[in-house]
Computed example of a mutant assay.
Amino acid sequence: MRHASRPVLDGTRGAVAVHEWPHPAPRFLALLAHGYGEHAGRYGALAAVLTGQGAAVYAPDHLGHGGSAGERVLIEDFEDLVTDLHAVADLARAAHPGLPLVLFGHSMGGLVAARYAQRYGSEPAALVLSAPVIGAWALPGRLLALPEIPDTPVSPAALSRDPAVGASYAADPLVWHGPMKRPTLEAFARALETVAAGGAVGALPVLWLHGDADRLVPMAGSRPGVERLGGRLTERIFPGARHEVFQELERARAVAELTGFLEAVLPR
């Protein structure tokens, strides 16, 4: 499967690298929003699942991440990421007009995708949220209360019980392995409030997947945000799973839940 990655868009604050996993005759478009500190290149396995279902897959590296412009992991306003994601959707639709659009957001990308669904409610055909940062996420407030942000990177072991996943993450030069930055934490806090006040997404089909042993984005904190977002919700919780259910020991079940959901909600 061909995978192209190149800076193709002028984003809100600089060049945005867009990963594309094409399909010769797609029946839908999939737009992926990755998590904090990582990059869309980590989603090749998920993209393969989606192209296998007939998707043309597009995924930007967010501002300050991966191959995109900006100071590393510095985000001053999450609305910029939503705007950039919408520009990628426009790119996809120009290449494949008339196809339904599925949004997929993991962790921080879940916050971006949820806000996209609020801002552009008539556009998505479905929304998939994996361990989304919405609802009551305590980390920003806890860190912002400190006089200095501790130099504590994301623990690779928190991602999955599969040690190969953590080892790959730790060795990836495009992953940020340093501390969070105060402006980014402040932007997280504002964006959480914005999504909380942004209203429900109507009858949009929503799939929520979460591991109940997720220490990075605890399931109990995400639940009120997911329920407030509304939509026609399908909830799938994975006992014992950590932050990345599509890279966990139960990845086959997570894939089956995703593909079953998409077959149910997308037109044939």
Rank of each mutant, 00 (worst) to 15 (best):
V88Q: 10
A254C: 03
L29K: 02
R232Y: 01
P140F: 09
I134A: 01
M1C: 11
L99V: 06
R228H: 11
V165C: 09
D90K: 15
H3Y: 09
L50T: 00
A170S: 12
G64H: 07
A264S: 11
P147H: 14
E38V: 15
L85M: 14
G230K: 14
A114N: 05
E186H: 01
K181Y: 10
A131D: 01
P156E: 11
T234N: 02
R42W: 07
P153W: 13
L99E: 09
T194I: 05
A157M: 10
R115I: 01
G64W: 06
A40P: 02
T194W: 05
F246N: 13
P224F: 13
P7V: 15
H210T: 05
E244K: 11
L31K: 07
R2W: 08
E186T: 09
A167H: 07
V88T: 12
E20K: 03
A145C: 07
A114Y: 06
E248M: 08
G141C: 05
H96G: 12
L99Y: 09
A170E: 13
G221N: 10
H62S: 09
L127C: 03
L9E: 02
G178A: 10
G52S: 05
E123M: 08
P163L: 09
L258H: 03
H243L: 03
G178F: 11
E76Y: 00
G105N: 02
V265A: 01
A170C: 08
Y116W: 15
P239G: 08
T259E: 11
H86A: 14
G110M: 11
G121Q: 08
G178L: 08
P60R: 01
E193Q: 13
L174G: 13
G70M: 03
D151E: 15
H96Y: 15
P163K: 10
E123H: 10
R161H: 14
L233W: 05
A125C: 05
H62I: 03
Y36D: 02
A48P: 00
H23N: 12
A87T: 13
E248K: 06
M108L: 12
V175I: 15
W208D: 03
Y36W: 15
H23E: 10
L9W: 04
V57S: 07
